[in-house]
């Protein structure tokens, strides 16, 4: 093409994580993931928003592609083939139906054409299919994924009348946020018991400061203070806040600070106002902010 393409476009199954995403493990989750992957056991990531679930999946996709950590020298690379491991992410929403995952017929000039959905493509390509916030999706989607999560490892496509056995590298990873109350949205037991579950929570203060500093590029003192702010705000969970301040939020604050926005203001726009609409809680958080930041 004559004009320079300003964007990068590729098929979803050709998406590889090629550079190491920054990830600070909190415990043995990397090893567990690796082991589960070797055994092709699907994985469920639980935890509040902004605790690094997505980042972790990216990190693992990269790690597994690189085959970086064979257990013993001489072990074959983890995904067997030595090929790169695609990562196909689907953000689930409340209108997501099974055919959005599996695929559908489209009309074209010659009649109809079948087009694979992201899940089908992942199954065929043998990559990691990451269904983010799985509880948000419609109930019929869960039925589709069940056969993929047990010994069958197969995907049935009703409309085509066919069943696809998953390629060897395929693994289903789902995430969900149990929320602070189990009241309204929950994962069915028949679904959740098909996964090994990894719990995510906010990193401890020091580690979080490290993450904030790395991700936002702000100085370490600011990062420490932001981490402290996060910690303090999380104390308000269940007392006016439904969720604690996410690490992501704190990173955004750090980025704004790096851009020269005043510390208090940056926290206000990226933390206080983001986290709640309740004026009184906002006021209280503001007081914490103005205590921690001069």
């Amino acid at each position: 093409m004559a004009t320079e393409q300003k964007y990068d476009e590729r098929n979803i199954e050709d998406y590889y994580v090629s550079e190491e995403p920054f990830y600070v493990p909190t415990s043995d989750e990397i090893e567990i993931f690796e082991s589960a992957y070797r055994q092709r056991v699907p994985i469920l990531l639980k935890g509040p928003t902004g605790t690094g679930k997505t980042r972790f999946v990216e990190h693992m996709a990269w790690r597994l592609s690189e085959g970086l950590t064979p257990r013993n020298p001489g072990d074959e690379a983890l995904n067997g083939s030595g090929e790169k491991l695609p990562l196909i992410t689907v953000a689930c929403h409340e209108d997501l139906t099974a055919s959005d995952l599996v695929g559908r017929y489209l009309l074209d000039a010659d009649g109809t054409r079948w087009i694979d959905g992201p899940l089908t493509r992942a199954v065929k390509a043998g990559g990691i299919c990451y269904l983010d916030e799985i509880v948000e999706a419609r109930k019929d989607t869960t039925v589709i994924i069940h056969p993929l999560t047990d010994h069958r490892r197969s995907l049935t496509i009703d409309k085509l009348g066919s069943t696809i056995d998953a390629a060897d590298g395929f693994l289903l990873v789902v995430s969900y946020n149990p929320g602070y109350q189990n009241a309204l949205k929950d994962l069915k037991h028949s679904t959740r018991q098909r996964f090994v579950a990894l719990e995510f929570d906010f990193p401890e203060e020091e580690r979080e400061a490290q993450i904030i500093a790395h991700e936002s590029g702000c100085d370490s003192d600011t990062a420490e203070r932001l981490a402290r702010l996060g910690l303090k705000i999380r104390n308000l969970r269940e007392h006016g806040l439904e969720e604690g301040a996410s690490t992501r939020m704190l990173i955004y604050a750090g980025r704004l600070i790096k851009e020269g926005v005043s510390q208090r203001r940056a926290c206000q726009v990226s933390v206080t106002w983001g986290i709640t609409d309740d004026p009184q809680v906002q006021r209280s958080i503001d007081e914490v902010v103005t205590s921690i930041f001069a």
Binding site: K232, I233, N235, L236, H239, G240, Q280, V281, R283, S284, I285, E287, V288, S291
Partner: peptide
């Protein structure tokens, strides 16, 4: 009082 109470909760983690 409510604001201070929440402020204290945030700082200490105790009600």
């Amino acid at each position: 009082r409510d604001v201070i109470q929440m402020y204290c909760l945030a700082l200490t983690g105790h009600t």
